[in-house]
Design a protein around this nucleic acid. Structure first.
Lengths: 336, 336
DNA sequence: GTGAAAGCGCTAACAA
DNA sequence: TTGTTAGCGCTTTCAC
């Protein structure tokens, strides 16, 4: 179905190597031969077989991407950034979804560490973070396949990383509500308290509260099985709250909608700000004041780090770098 | 870095083919040899090189997936379904994002039609649908790479398809508001009127309105650059509306939030129902009554169709099938 | 300027 | 039971 060098060679009555060289504009080959070869190749829509190339050159120009959850808007956006940057550099991506499961994460690595890819970009799954397992990562790296981790990372693994300034972002956001807006009771809502990033965000909140407020941290944790609307409603009714920082992308808009539903005025009675995309931030009136993570940049940076390492095969495995992508605050109507 | 048969053979003082056969449990090989080989392979963590296998067997067990927009929650969910079903069958997926662009869609096909994949699953990009281009699809199929289209499909291309009962779903939904709830002024809101599915949905709405209402169709079209909150607000203020059908996944919740914002009671004054995921439906109070598309099933079905065709190499290219995945209605608080 | 041959890692038909 | 060989499609060194 696909034309091969062999077929072109036969039809042109030249050798395979001549065709190969001609197509690669080799100095060795005569001008008219080059022309003849190229014309026929064009006619038959010849494309060098990627698999044969990979085998020959011992590299696939393919990146394995392991994502815990593609329905997570942030992760999807990072994936988008990865795909775009990879394409830009002539790389393809093979995607595995770990479903937040350690087992599936291992399988994904295992499955692709057979010559299918040149390296990995991944975000550590929830279960992996909870169990703090890192052996499979180290093994993969030892096999010669570099890994770049983003967002949720395993600190015990020596590899390139791209992370967000989670702690600082929430510390600053909380202080903004406390100091600039003069809020007295700022709460923290999170459905990701078991993730490394969730913990960092909560710590940033705690620090600000301890420093600049006279109440204790006030934290609502929501689990996957909870109805978050109900939980948040009860939380609001049982606590007098005038400010909310949300750690995940759904809780912010749900908090606003819930507040309005029970008759509060946002942002007059209650300020809300939190991590989200602009897409999600649009799902409430007023729109959510948003901590933006620049997901696409995170993806692009991960690709850059990986490709750099792939090209520097002699670079030491111990010389790793961590890039921190700064968040920015998008002021919308849900804060003063 | 990766152990090869050659290295194992050398270390064991047997031939390469003996090792290969032993690892594949060939009858020809002696039991103890098999055991020795397997032990060493285990020790060295031998994995057959995927690229070499692909070259040899002339198939990659890889599916090319071309998606217009991975930030679209529906498409992301289909991708999730594709990935899961593909993994189940021992297939990997290589993903390209077309960004709703004809050019990028072509490039994606082009890029992977070089032996990288055994076939394609794709959703036609917006630009492609607007310009009604199909040559690149036909060319790919002619090259021997089967295509399965889902959701937005090109009717002029002979290939397997997985679609949704868009027309019927909206026809029924509209009738539900008109006949069961007795609504008098049911509007249709869409930000996807240029897509095949958007058109079908609008036609379903129109039919129901013409049959069972005494007003003309009342349609609000929103473009990507519009602020949908403002547009919907103006629409509500300029028309007396007591029912809304939304064609895309964002407009429904935004319509509810907007209605509440201008003092309407949902669902008493206004019923809203529309296409969305349960994730998005949660972003309003009351929650959006939802037309669910079973995105994961769509993905899974696409994979099944493709694999079936790949295994039936002798099957006629002209014998294609179309699977229709029925939507279901999830009743939530935004309707009576 | 062109071609023959080796080799990437693997399988399988055939030989021994 | 084990080994030899050819070949998948390509690049590249070395001969001619």
């Amino acid at each position: 179905m696909m034309v091969t060098l062999k077929q072109l060679a036969k039809e042109l009555n030249v050798s395979i190597s001549t065709v190969s060289k001609a197509l690669n504009n080799s100095e060795e080959i005569g001008e008219d031969t080059i022309k003849r070869v190229k014309e026929l190749a064009e006619l038959y829509n010849y494309k060098p077989n990627k698999v044969a190339l990979s085998l020959k050159q011992n590299k696939t120009k393919t990146i394995g991407v392991i994502i815990p959850d593609i329905l997570n808007h942030f992760l999807a956006k990072v994936l988008f950034g990865i795909e775009r940057e990879a394409t830009l550099h002539g790389y393809n991506i093979i995607t595995c979804i770990s479903n937040e499961s350690l087992e599936q994460e291992k399988e994904g690595l295992q499955l692709l560490a057979n010559g299918s890819v040149d390296g990995f970009i991944l975000c550590v799954s929830q279960e992996t973070q909870v169990k703090n397992e890192v052996a499979h990562f180290k093994k993969t790296i030892a096999e010669g396949l570099p890994i770049v981790m983003f967002d949720r990372v395993a600190h015990d693994v020596l590899c390139d990383k791209v992370i967000v300034d989670d702690f600082d972002a929430v510390y600053n956001a909380t202080n903004m509500l406390l100091l600039l807006e003069g809020r007295k009771n700022v709460a923290f809502i999170s459905s990701i308290d078991d993730l490394s990033v969730g913990k960092l965000r909560e710590r940033g909140y705690n620090k600000a509260i301890l420093e600049n407020s006279d109440h204790l941290p006030l934290v609502l944790r929501i689990s996957k099985i909870d109805d978050s609307q109900l939980k948040i409603k009860a939380f609001f009714e049982n606590n007098k709250i005038d400010g909310v920082i949300s750690a995940d992308s759904a809780s912010g808009v749900i908090a606003i909608n819930t507040a309005i539903n029970i008759g509060l005025n946002v942002p007059k009675d209650l300020s809300v700000m939190g991590f989200a995309s602009n897409y999600i931030a649009n799902h409430s009136i007023p729109k959510l004041t948003t901590i933006r993570q620049h997901a696409k940049d995170i993806g692009a940076n991960a690709v850059q780090l990986l490709i750099k390492r792939l090209q520097n095969k002699n670079a030491s495995e111990n010389d790793v770098s961590t890039r921190i992508i700064k968040t920015s605050l998008i002021k919308n109507g849900s804060t003063l």
